[in-house]
Structure formats: C-alpha cells, structure tokens
Amino acid sequence: MPFRSPQSDEQNLGLTLTAPVRAAIREFVASIVPTVIPIVQGSADRITALLGSYLLKTDATATYSPLGHKHAASDITAGGTTASGFTVGGDLEVSGGVTATGAVTGDAGTFPSALNSTGVYGRQLTSSYKAVYIDAGGNFGFSPSPRAVKTNIRPWQPDTDVLLRIVPSLYQYKAEFTERDRRAALPEDDPDHDDDYQVATMLGVIADDLDELGLEEFIFRDETGALAGVHYELLALALLPVIQAQEARLSTIEQHLGLPGKEQP
C-alpha cells in the first residue's frame, strides 16, 4: 500500500469546499482589504505624530541635523519658553521685528539700519559714566586717555589767530522742515499728526567753515570723503592754547608797564 502524507486541516477544508463556497470566501476577503488598509495607515500616521511630538517636547536637549527636522512657527511661539529660555548657539536671522520684554544681552550685535532706544534718552546717569563714541565701523565705545595707552605724545601748537576765527552759528536742520510738513499732511486721527510741530533752532559751528580754516582735526567725513560733522568734544581743547597765548600777552604787557604780575602757583 503506497505511503500518503497527512494533510493539514486547511488542505482538507479546501478539498471539502465546493467551488462556489471558495469563490464567496475570496470575494469576502477582497472586500475586507480596502477597509483595513486605511485603518492601518491611520494608525501608522498617529504613531508617527506621537513620536514627533514626544521628540519635540520631551527630548528638547537632543541635537538634530539642521536638515533633518524643522518646526512650524506655532510650535515655537505657542506657550512661550520656560526655564532658562530659548538659546541659539549660532547666528539667528529674523526677517521681522524682535520685541523683548526683558533684557537682551550678548557679546556683540550688528544693526545695519539703526539702533533705537527711547529709554536711553530719558535715563539719568549720576556716576561712573563715560563719553561714548562711534567708530567708522559703527561700533560703540569710549576713547581711553591714560599715558600708558598712548605714544608719540607731543604738544599741540596751533595758530591761535585761526582758532579765534571760529564763529558760532544759529541754524535749523532741513530735515526738521521735512518732518514738520509730513506731520501736518497726515490725517487728523493719525497719532503722528501735528499742526504745531516746532522746528528747533540749534547752536553750533559749520563744518565747512572749519574746513576752510584748515582745522581738519575738528571735522569728520563720511565714507565718500564728504563733510559729515564736527568733533564738538575737541572744541573745548581749542580754548586752552588761546587762553595760554592771551595769558602770555597779558604778562608781557604787565612787565612792560611795570605792573605786578600774576603770582605763579
């Protein structure tokens, strides 16, 4: 009697089912697949979203490739920041404005257009203050004066007659008239509207006049070489050689007239 291998239940079932029954089963299975696939896919999407949320919220100290992930603006701004705040190790570029309710600190910063602070204008300094200057690179700083940081020190001997030809002037800035006209032309409900804008009258010296007198050390120029302004902080120094020269002339006149001279300290 030839050997016959045992058959599985599935094989036995397949032998006992009629063709119509097998066709019905195949049709039933085929109808289930389109329904199951969206359910499985939806579950996979939910798992992916949960993992992404977990990585963003619970593993925030991890380092990710810059090209490996990104955050929507709402993910960063919603709820604000906690603990020590938001830290950026490199440059942070912002296309719009940046507003801070607290202090903004750092080693350096570049502002190509302007740097503005209305609070600085009204801040009173009572001690430990320095005169702040701006160099050609737009950097703020002070000008040190100790002998230890200077070299080639020598007396300045200007022509005092030229210094006496410096004439103070009253003037008004053209830009002030432009601003006055702009404010007057605004609608009356605009906060900047002002029919009574007053153009200020200033007191100073004219850079062109100093340039004509050859007093180049008292003026500064822009990057094109055109006259830009006056070193007003240096004008007080110009008085010292003038006073000294006047004092020497008075002493000479007193000696000539036989008058008692000024006692030397």
Rank of each mutant, 00 (worst) to 15 (best):
Ser128Pro: 00
Ile76Ala: 06
Gln41Ser: 13
Thr48Met: 07
Val29Arg: 08
Val167Glu: 12
Gly79Ala: 05
Pro265Gly: 09
Thr101Glu: 06
Arg165Cys: 02
Lys130Tyr: 12
Ser74Gly: 10
Ala83Cys: 06
Glu233Leu: 06
Ile166Glu: 08
Glu233Met: 04
Ile243Glu: 13
Pro66Asp: 08
Leu163Gly: 04
Gly97Arg: 02
Glu263Gly: 10
Ala30Tyr: 03
Leu210His: 02
Asp211Trp: 04
Leu55His: 00
Asp209Gln: 14
Asp189Gly: 07
Tyr54Ala: 10
Val242Asn: 04
Ala72Tyr: 10
Arg165Ser: 09
Ala24Asn: 02
Val21Met: 05
Glu27Gly: 02
Ile37Met: 12
Ala245Gly: 04
Glu176Ile: 02
Pro191Gln: 11
Gln255Pro: 01
Tyr171Pro: 03
Ala114Asp: 11
Asp45Arg: 14
Leu227Phe: 02
Ser113Asp: 14
Ala44Lys: 07
Thr160Tyr: 06
Thr77Leu: 10
Phe3Asn: 08
Phe111Tyr: 07
Leu163Asn: 05
Gly42Trp: 04
Gly119Asn: 13
Lys130Ile: 08
Gly225Gln: 09
Thr105Asn: 14
His71Thr: 10
Pro66Ala: 07
Glu233Val: 08
Glu216Cys: 03
Met202Pro: 00
Gln41His: 10
Gln246His: 07
Ala30Thr: 03
Arg154Leu: 06
Gln255Met: 09
Ile76Tyr: 01
Arg182Val: 07
Arg26Asp: 00
Thr87Met: 08
Ser251Asn: 12
Ala245Arg: 07
His231Lys: 15
Ala100His: 01
Ser145Glu: 08
Val21His: 03
Ala78Gln: 03
Pro168Lys: 11
Asp190Met: 07
Thr126Ala: 12
Leu240Ile: 15
Gly214Asp: 11
Tyr133Cys: 01
Val29Trp: 03
Pro144Ala: 07
Gln7Phe: 01
Tyr64Ser: 13
Tyr232Gly: 14
Gly229Leu: 09
Asp196Leu: 12
Arg147Val: 11
Thr126Gln: 11
Arg4Trp: 01
Ala103Gly: 04
Ala73Gln: 11
Val104Gly: 06
Ser251Thr: 13
Gly97Asp: 13
Val33Glu: 14
Pro146Leu: 13
Leu51Pro: 00
Gly229Gln: 09
Leu239Cys: 09
Gly52Trp: 05
Gly52Pro: 01
Ala100Asp: 01
Ile243Gly: 07
Thr178Asp: 15
Ala72Gly: 12
Met202Arg: 13
Ala19Pro: 00
Arg182Ile: 06
Ala248Tyr: 02
Tyr232Ala: 12
Ser65Met: 05
Thr18Ser: 14
Val33Asp: 09
Leu170Thr: 08
Pro2Leu: 06
Ala60Pro: 00
Val242Ile: 15
Asp59Ala: 10
Tyr171Ser: 10
Ala114Gln: 12
Leu240Ser: 09
Gly68Thr: 05
Thr63Asp: 12
Glu217Arg: 11
Ile25Arg: 03
Lys150Gln: 14
Leu237Trp: 13
Leu170Pro: 00
Val205Met: 03
Leu55Asp: 01
Asp181Ala: 15
Phe140Trp: 05
Phe220Trp: 13
Ala49Trp: 07
Ser251Pro: 00
Gly137Ser: 14
Leu213Tyr: 13
